[in-house]
Every structure is written in C-alpha cells, then in structure tokens.
Design a protein around this nucleic acid. Structure first.
Lengths: 133, 133
DNA sequence: CCGCATCCCAACCGATACTG
DNA sequence: CAGTATCGGTTGGGATGCGG
C-alpha cells in the first residue's frame, strides 16, 4: 500500500479513497458481513472442526434454522466455508472452513479474547451508567 | 481460565458453561454489541484521535445522525468512549476512546487488515458463486 | 452545533408448515 | 436430516422537525 490518493470536496476535510469508512470501499462490505449477528459465532464453531448442520444449530444457542442456513449460505458464497453433501439416507451435510475461512480465525479469536477479558469491566460500566441516568 | 465446567443433557454433546456461544454468556453480549453496523467503524475513527460529532458524521459515510448518536451512547455506556461537552456557544462536544476503549483498537485493526487483504478473494468467490446459481 | 422526538417504511428474523 | 416457503411481528434506521 504505497502512496494514497485523496478526494477534497467543499467544506469537508480530505478523506483517503481506500478508506474503509467510505461506503463504496470493499472493506466496508466485509465488515458489514462479519458484523451480522451469527457469522462470527458460526466461524468460531467451525474453527473447532468440521460440523454438521444440526451440530451447529445446537452449539450456536438461539439461532433459528432459517438464520443458520442463511448465514452458512453467505459464508459459502464468500468462499469461507465449504459445504459437502453425502448422499446417504438420511442425507448428511458437513460444513468446513476453507483455507480462506481459516485465515479469519485469528482475528476472530483476538476479538473473542478481548470480549472475555473485558466482559466484567463493561458490565460494571453499564451498571454505573444506568444508575446515573 | 482454569478448569472448565460442563453441562451434559440428553442427546447433545457436552458444552462448556463459559462458552461464548451460549446465549447467557457475557461474551455473547459483547459480540452482539460489537457486531452492529456502526460500532466498529466509529471506534476505528476514534482510534485516529479525538473527534467531534460532526467530524464523525462525515467520516463514517452513510451513518445517520440518529444512529451515530445511538452508537456513541452505547459506547459511552460500555465505558469505551468518553464524551466531553465544552459549554461554548455554540456547544462543542468531543468524543474520545477511554483506556478500555483503546484496548479494542488492536483486535479491531486485525479484522480490518483481514478485510483489506481478502476483499478481492471474497469478491471473486461471490462472483463465481452467483454465476453458478 | 449537538442531539432528542416522532413518524414511518423496509429489512430482519422467528414460527410454522411442507419437501427430498 | 437438512433444508425451502411463507407469513407476520419486531426492529433498524432514515427523514423531518424542534430545542438548548
């Protein structure tokens, strides 16, 4: 990432063109995708190993069957998850992270660890805030 | 994080009690909070330095004033952002990350970097997927 | 300049019923 | 078992107008 180009419009400060905060930047799309309610959780489970649909459904507490399907489809479309159907009776379907999907695990784990170590502080801050408002 | 406790119910595999995938785990709440449409973007901007409301509004392209206010209130409640009002005329309000908030920057940057380096691959995967469906 | 209140529509998402 | 289809409530979030 060498030199950066800028747009300068009236009244606003210059903003880098490859800025992830610009709506048209691909980065923004990805952050939107990752930022939905279930994607990170599903990837987290899959990082523990391949998994069948019903196993995921049990592990990700509260996800509906519809949302789980939708989330898995999205991840498959993004090339982060591979879906394998074994034509047995009854059908068995296995979900697994692709190589690309596995690269998401580390940043994801970083976030989860942050959440774990700061859960108490945040809860306390919320309580304090709610008390004085 | 020492030994972990497990629940074992009929038909389902054991699940750790402090598992972030359980709905009642505090970690889950945080992931939900972080996973909304604007929080990560706002934190990202604030990591560059303190910022006024209108500056944030311009930088986070597409955010409405309502959502920006809501997001900032949430972050303030979580103890991640500090809001300072300067009683001038007209009023000036500065937002800044707290110490706790700054600890979020690193995992956040990791995610952003992932998004930047994988934007092309994901776009290609999507195109391929859409083509064959 | 900052932000609250209201109205309102669209998207999300859960529940349910049905298929291979 | 692993889905698809449909319906309907809930929520997200934009637009607008007002107040300090």
């Amino acid at each position: 990432m060498g030199s950066r180009h800028f747009v300068v419009t009236n009244q606003t400060e210059p903003v880098p063109l490859d800025d992830p905060y610009r709506a048209d930047c691909p980065t923004r799309h990805l952050l939107d995708r990752i930022g939905d309610r279930w994607t990170m959780l599903v990837v987290g489970i899959l990082s523990e190993g391949d998994s069948r649909f019903s196993h995921l459904r049990r592990r990700v507490e509260g996800v509906s069957q519809k949302m789980l399907t939708q989330t898995l489809r999205g991840l498959e479309r993004d090339g982060l998850v591979r879906r394998t159907v074994y034509p047995e009776v009854p059908v068995r379907v296995e979900y697994a992270l692709t190589d690309a999907g596995r690269t998401l695990c580390e940043p994801l784990r970083a976030l989860q660890e942050w959440a774990i170590t700061h859960a108490v502080d945040v809860a306390a801050a919320q309580a304090a805030y709610d008390y004085s408002h």
